[in-house]
Write a protein that binds this DNA or RNA. Structure first.
Lengths: 124, 124
DNA sequence: AATGTATATAACCAAACGGTTAAATACAAA
DNA sequence: TTTGTATTTAACCGTTTGGTTATATACATT
C-alpha cells in the first residue's frame, strides 16, 4: 500500500541527486548497499539513510541474502508521479495549441506568416 | 535559464501538496496571490514563501499589475521532470515485457495458460 | 494627505534533512 | 570461537523547511 501522501514522498525522494543516481543504477538491475555506495564519496550510513527514504517512498524494495540486503527498483510510484506531471504538461501544451489556433486565425490574411515552431523537441 | 540542479529543485517544489494545489489552480489560468491563498487555511506569508519556491524552480513566473503580482504556470521544468521519470518507467515496463516474453516461452506447452494482465490501466 | 488593499520581508520557532563518527548487529568463513 | 564483512542504529551537528506574527512597502482610492 502506498503512503498517505504518496505523491509528496515520491517527489521528495526524487528531489536528491544521490537518490536519483541510485535509482538510475537500480534500473540496470538489483544491487547491494555496498555496490550502490561505491560511486559516491559518502559514508555508508548516509547511503543507508538515502535507501530508507527510497524505501519509505516505495521506490525500492529490499531482499535478504546472507549479510546482504539487495535493493531493487519498484516503479509503481513513478507511474503516479508521471501521471501527475503529465497532466499539467498536457494542459500547458493544450494552451499552446489554443494560442496557435488563435494566432493562425488572427494572421489569416498576413502575406507571409512566420512558421512558428512550438515544440522543437517534438515529443509525444 | 534553469537552475544548476534544476531537476532537484523541480522535484522538491513538487513535493508539497500545497504547492501542487497551487500549480493545479494555475493550470486553469493566471491568478493573484490572494486568489491562490483563498482555498488554504494558512497565512499569506506562508503562501508567499510557497510561491517563491515555485518561482525559484521556474515552475511559475510573475507579473506586475498595480498592487497585484499575478502568477502563471511555466511548464518547461515539468517537461524535464516528466522526461526523467518516464525514462525509468519505460525501463521498468521493458523489464516486464521481457518477463512476459520469458513466461510465455516457459509456459509454451501449458494446457490453458492464464492470460496475464500486466498493465491494467493500460496507459501509453 | 490619509486610508485601504495587496504583497513582501524580518524575526522567530520546531521539525526534518543530509551528512558525520562510533558502536551494534547479523551472518560467513577460518 | 574468533575474525572479517555487510549493514544498520545512535547520537550528534549545521542547514533547510514550513509555518507563525508583526512590520514594511507599494499602489489605488478617497
Amino acid at each position: 500500500m502506498l503512503a498517505p501522501d504518496h505523491l509528496s514522498s515520491t517527489f521528495q525522494a526524487l528531489a536528491d541527486p544521490t537518490r536519483r543516481a541510485i535509482l538510475a543504477r537500480l534500473s540496470k538491475g538489483e544491487a547491494s548497499v555496498t555496490e550502490l555506495a561505491a560511486p559516491f564519496s559518502m559514508s555508508m550510513p548516509a547511503i543507508s539513510k538515502h535507501l530508507k527514504v527510497l524505501e519509505r517512498a516505495s521506490l525500492i524494495s529490499r531482499g535478504k541474502e546472507a549479510q546482504w540486503r539487495p535493493c531493487k527498483l519498484e516503479a509503481a510510484p513513478l507511474e503516479a508521479a508521471s501521471d501527475w506531471v503529465e497532466q499539467y504538461r498536457a494542459m500547458w501544451e493544450a494552451r499552446f495549441d489554443r494560442l496557435d489556433a488563435y494566432l493562425k486565425e488572427v494572421q489569416e490574411k498576413e502575406v507571409k506568416p512566420t512558421t512558428r515552431k512550438r515544440n522543437a523537441k517534438g515529443k509525444r
